[in-house]
């Protein structure tokens, strides 16, 4: 029983990272209709920026954190300006492939700037733990869960109550009509990219606390995509629930299936493939996810 409890705790703290990344996917997708394959790479860049300021330039952690978020937002706006401004109304294939290309450009650029070594960021909460019963919780994972819930509330309010949020939803629904209604579509898209990248940076920095800063941390982004699909690509609620669910599924799969062997087939580390199996199953059974609505296509 204690073990199950521990798996749940660990699963939720990994899941919170997926939630944050998935939130970034959903934010960008909801407002621009673009599925950003480079979300994990943006998270990686955010973590590296934080590392540069916190560890290399020795600034206070909180300051470095905020600078990383700022740079993340600027980078997001810049990406929109450079790549997606002229892609409005282009087919899905083109926009998807641009984000895929962007992902490899970002990895390559990060490799040139920061190199391929593995680094650690020292945060004030690193290595601090809290014991509840027999289970050890790290401050880092508590803060991650807390921040992802906070962001969830903030974005729920934002999309339902604020003018900008409603305008974003409108733009995603139909950019042409939104433009006719007096919404500045370009500005909305830029804001969405800035916010989406900022959230990615937050996710990257927390991920770096749970592990390290390194180029390959961007792979987490692809798994977070499974979380976004599971929740429904357009649902903020779905992103959070989907992320936590993927974290839990991975945790249980890793504890009970990894290392098993069936007739010449070694299960190996099931954790790495669990998210993709979930993704395929969801796509086959309920392509619009748990909280998503099926879109009716008009001719």
């Amino acid at each position: 029983m204690e073990r199950v409890f521990e798996i749940i705790i660990n699963g939720l703290s990994t899941g919170a990272i997926y939630s944050l990344l998935a939130l970034g996917f959903v934010l960008i997708f909801k407002s621009t209709g673009i599925l950003n394959f480079a979300q994990g790479e943006l998270a990686m860049v955010g973590a590296f920026v934080c590392f540069t300021f916190a560890s290399q330039l020795q600034l206070p952690y909180l300051l470095a954190f905020l600078i990383a978020l700022g740079i993340g937002a600027v980078l997001g706006a810049f990406i929109d300006l450079l790549f997606f401004r002229r892609m409005v109304g282009e087919p899905v294939f083109a926009t998807i492939m641009i984000t895929v290309g962007l992902a490899s450009i970002l990895t390559s650029a990060a490799g040139i700037i920061w190199g391929h070594d593995v680094h650690a960021i020292r945060a004030p909460f690193t290595d601090k733990t809290l014991e509840v019963g027999n289970v050890v919780l790290t401050h880092g994972s508590l803060i991650t869960v807390g921040v992802s819930l906070l962001l969830f509330v903030v974005f729920m309010l934002f999309f339902n109550r604020s003018l900008l949020g409603v305008a974003m939803r409108g733009t995603a629904e139909d950019p042409d009509t939104a433009g006719l209604m007096g919404i500045n579509v370009n500005k909305i898209h830029m804001a969405a990219w800035a916010i989406g990248t900022l959230v990615a940076a937050v996710a990257g920095i927390f991920l770096a606390d749970q592990s390290f800063v390194r180029l390959s941390m961007s792979h987490t982004g692809i798994k977070a995509m499974a979380a976004a699909i599971l929740g429904g690509m357009e649902s903020i609620r779905g992103a959070v629930v989907g992320g936590l669910a993927i974290g839990l599924i991975e945790g249980f799969a890793a504890n009970y299936l990894s290392g098993a062997e069936v007739g010449g087939f070694h299960f190996g580390d099931v954790k790495e493939v669990a998210a993709f199996v979930v993704m395929i199953v969801v796509l086959m059974i309920r392509p619009h996810g748990i909280f998503g609505r099926e879109k009716v296509e008009r001719v």
Partner: peptide, 21 residues
């Protein structure tokens, strides 16, 4: 007990908890 992990993994909580188990 043997616990495999895929190249590039960084989250070892499941592996270590199976070891502890």
């Amino acid at each position: 007990k043997a616990a495999p992990y895929k190249v590039g993994t960084i989250d070892f909580s499941p592996h270590m908890s199976t070891m502890k188990e």
